[in-house]
């Protein structure tokens, strides 16, 4: 039976993991994304998401090197996001060894990027990241871009369907209402999106404890759950989360 996936995510700036990761005690390894990726594979992570938050060209080159080194040493699938603006960026990341790329703002500004990327490299490697925030006036979740700073007026549900139609292989759905709050994923939002598309939905934003993953896989109908700080700061481990879910009958590797 196909399992629900647990996906640790980390931000990378100029080649280093941005947040201090408490369980890597060796000073040198603590900020190395490849070392962190290996630890997560060891813990049973099903996939990884590496988000490049570097803005400079030098940073981009460093990121490609990290993608290469990760692909050389880590034998689970990983997605790379951040800074993708054109099809050429997708090509570079895939050639460096990324299994999938994730696009957010660029996809909203230029939806043709989804279509072209999927046509050229296959839907399986095109992930569209959607940041959604509940909008009272719209009575809908609104798509936010530029890391949540800019509102678009787009309905997240409609946008998710358009992404699917254009050939996206997965939706990485982040609730901006829940992100960083640690009191659980946005179950309603996740379920609504998951029920309106026929591609897998990765839920993100709000994981603070093990039970939140259970809720998002059952009530939220997510195919995968993504989290950052809950794993980085050793509040729990991927192993513990998976054990907890398995005991409660969730299909887990």
């Amino acid at each position: 039976m196909l399992t629900k996936r647990i996906i640790p995510c980390f931000d990378i700036k100029n080649g280093r993991v941005v947040k201090n990761v408490s369980f890597l005690t060796n000073e040198r390894d603590a900020g190395d994304p490849v070392e962190l990726a290996k630890v997560y594979e060891e813990q049973g992570a099903d996939e990884l998401v590496l988000l490049d938050i570097t803005a400079t060209n030098e940073g981009r080159a460093t990121m490609l090197d990290i993608v290469r080194r990760t692909a050389d040493q880590v034998f689970i699938p990983f997605t790379v996001g951040g800074g993708i603006k054109e099809v050429e960026d997708i090509r570079e990341l895939l050639l460096a060894g990324a299994d999938k790329v994730s696009m957010n703002t660029a996809a909203v500004k230029n939806p043709q990027l989804i279509t072209d990327g999927a046509k050229r490299y296959g839907s399986q490697c095109i992930v569209v990241a959607i940041d959604g925030k509940w909008n009272v006036e719209m009575q809908d979740w609104e798509v936010m871009i530029n890391a949540g700073k800019v509102s678009t007026g787009l309905s997240a549900l409609k946008w998710a369907r358009e992404c699917e139609d254009r050939g996206a292989g997965e939706i990485l759905l982040t609730s901006f209402d829940q992100d960083g709050q640690k009191n659980g994923f946005d179950l309603d939002f996740t379920r609504r999106v998951s029920e309106s598309v026929r591609i897998p939905v990765i839920a993100s934003g709000g994981a603070g404890e093990k039970s939140h993953f259970y809720d998002v896989f059952t009530t939220g109908k997510a195919d995968a759950g993504l989290a950052a700080s809950i794993f980085h700061f050793k509040e729990t481990t991927v192993t513990e989360v998976k054990k907890y879910l398995k005991e409660r009958g969730v299909s887990i590797r």
Binding site: M1, T3, R5, D46, G169, R198, P200, D223, R253
Partner: peptide, 27 residues
Amino acid sequence: KIPHIGWNDLTLTRESALLDGVQNGDY
């Protein structure tokens, strides 16, 4: 949902040297 994407478990149906160390139910 298509593609079939993610971790799924194996049912071994025949013996082979290729499967040494792989078990029924491995993902």
